[in-house]
Design a protein around this nucleic acid. Structure first.
Lengths: 154, 154
DNA sequence: ACACGATCGACAGCATGCTGTCAATCGTGG
DNA sequence: CCACGATTGACAGCATGCTGTCGATCGTGT
């Protein structure tokens, strides 16, 4: 309590560890997609477009705001990696789908991602990874439920 | 391979879990500091200023760019939560230190943070948390070393 | 004493994420 | 069949993080 910068408690250390891993993964994502003229965000949208869907659907799945996805998608469309196809059933929205160029780029990124993971896999056992994932999901649930509690209080 | 959106492998699931937890923690950070008119980023800088140091030092510790911290610090200074004190030994830089107002606000945020953690602690065992932290740090190391490998290739 | 590389703050510009608002459209309930 | 709430994309504006460049200053090595 005398020094809140010193993360002496288990929770603070955990938070810092999560920030660390998150930062490194994000950084690796940039590194993987940069040579293809892309970025992590572009890649995520591109990946989603593998199975054609609307921007709103993507945003929901990713847990991001609609507009964040929309802006990225608009750029990808201008670059010719995705195309908007009007939906006959709904005049408001359009399907996002990969163009041939988009397929190419996504494929190359995918190969780089696989190579990267192979590198990682040699240093981490899959069992450890699975345990970690399970535990992290428990933490997520604890966090989510504590957040929804507070929501009621508002 | 036929569908890279389906995270069927352990690594993808892990990455998604990390994104999830990171997002929830960040969100909780905003929630904690918003009622005090602050944000997660402000809070981090404010917390660092508890022990007076320069912007550059803070940035290094946080693993952020100097300018990101600088901009936030400038805002905090305009709000009167921190103050710049010229260093006699180095005319380029100044010490960032908390003003009385800054101390107050940081104290209030700290209390809220403690309350929040108490909420979480009731759902997670400290032992689990420590194990998780240890494993995450291993992953960080694996990531970091794989990244520095690639650096050599450039 | 001085020259050169490192460090620092200032300034500028970009990417990504968020929120709020609006009009068009959809779909449902009356 | 129509009115109203929900959804969607467009537009605008903000916060946070990054990078690159510049001039001032520091410190080291000669």
């Amino acid at each position: 309590m005398s020094d809140r910068r010193g993360p002496e408690d288990a929770w603070s250390e955990f938070v810092l560890a999560v920030f660390d891993v998150n930062g490194l993964i994000t950084q690796a994502g940039e590194r993987i997609s940069r040579p293809l003229g892309q970025s992590s965000a572009r890649w995520h949208v591109l990946g989603r477009a593998f199975q054609p869907q609307t921007v709103a659907q993507m945003a929901a799945e990713m847990g991001h705001a609609r507009q964040s996805v929309q802006r990225v998608a608009d750029v990808l469309e201008r670059e010719g990696l995705i195309a908007y196809r009007p939906l006959p059933t709904d005049r408001r929205t359009k399907l996002v789908e990969l163009t041939p160029r988009g397929h190419e780029v996504l494929g190359e990124i995918y190969q780089r991602q696989v190579a990267w993971f192979a590198e990682i896999a040699s240093r981490l056992s899959e069992a450890t990874l699975r345990e970690l994932t399970t535990s992290l999901n428990e933490v997520s649930q604890a966090l989510a439920s504590s957040m929804s509690n507070e929501e009621q209080a508002s």
